[in-house]
């Protein structure tokens, strides 16, 4: 008998500290599997955000730098420009990437910065306890939209992939989900493609992963996946929004 599935090497043997059923763990694993399969752990540097995954520097086996809130793409830019032979990725949540760090994200894409961004969108601020995120859905109840997000008052959700797809420097902008086996497998392919594009020096690549927050959504793990399917996917359609195409691998 052969082992057909096990923990990837690029994850340290440290238990995740996420809530039961939180899909951060799945996404971490996909990034680590990609690093393993491409054989790049020794020359990869990851940038951790501020948010629930702030401590992911304890989980990934590659070198890690923890960035100020929202600044991961700028920190990654500095790293990549300093050590261009290395693979640099950021792992960011929706508040980090699409609120406080919007400028850093957009301009890293504008420059075609040769980095990979793994963007975890769960439509809520998890770390601070369930406040409105830039990606919270219309009418979604959060701690800071207690009567539901009124778009005429609090503005509309940002569709990050659609926005970044309009920029010349973006090589890949793809939205995926981890709500079922098939979607997880697709997410893996997208993440691997994004890293491959970086290796091929094609520019800025971003994979937006729709994710859950059982604790702040007040739902159990399975209900959370259903909520994602019923509410997030219709607003944030899965798919490839930009792909310069023709990858050689």
């Amino acid at each position: 008998m052969a082992v057909v599935f096990q923990k990837p090497q690029a994850l340290l043997d440290v238990p995740f500290t996420y809530c039961p059923g939180c899909t951060h763990g799945i996404i971490h694993r996909l990034v680590a599997e990609t690093i393993d399969e491409l054989g790049i752990e020794g020359h990869t540097v990851g940038v951790a955000p501020v948010g629930c995954s702030v401590m992911n520097y304890n989980f990934f086996a590659c070198d890690m730098v923890q960035a100020p809130h929202g600044r991961a793409p700028a920190v990654a830019t500095g790293l990549k420009r300093a050590i261009p032979e290395n693979i640099v990725f950021t792992y960011q949540g929706d508040g980090d990437l699409a609120a406080i760090g919007t400028a850093e994200t957009v301009h890293a894409a504008v420059r075609g910065e040769n980095i990979t961004v793994v963007f975890v969108n769960n439509a809520i601020y998890g770390m601070t306890g369930g406040q409105m995120a830039p990606t919270s859905l219309p009418n979604q109840v959060t701690q800071t939209t207690p009567y539901g997000r009124d778009t005429s008052y609090s503005g509309h959700p940002i569709r990050v992939c659609e926005m970044l797809a309009t920029l010349e420097g973006t090589a890949l902008a793809q939205r995926v989900s981890v709500d079922n086996v098939k979607n997880v497998q697709n997410a893996k392919k997208a993440i691997k493609k994004a890293f491959t594009y970086q290796i091929e020096k094609r520019g800025f690549s971003i994979v937006e992963v729709l994710s859950t927050c059982p604790t702040n959504w007040g739902l159990d793990a399975q209900e959370s996946l259903q909520w994602l399917r019923d509410n997030m996917i219709p607003y944030y359609p899965l798919g490839v929004y930009k792909d310069v195409g023709g990858t050689t691998k």
């Binding site: 500095g78 990549k80 050590i83 290395n86």
Partner: peptide
């Protein structure tokens, strides 16, 4: 923050 990144890389 770009300085932070480049410095973190040792430069």
């Amino acid at each position: 923050n770009m300085v932070l990144g480049a410095s973190a890389a040792g430069k």
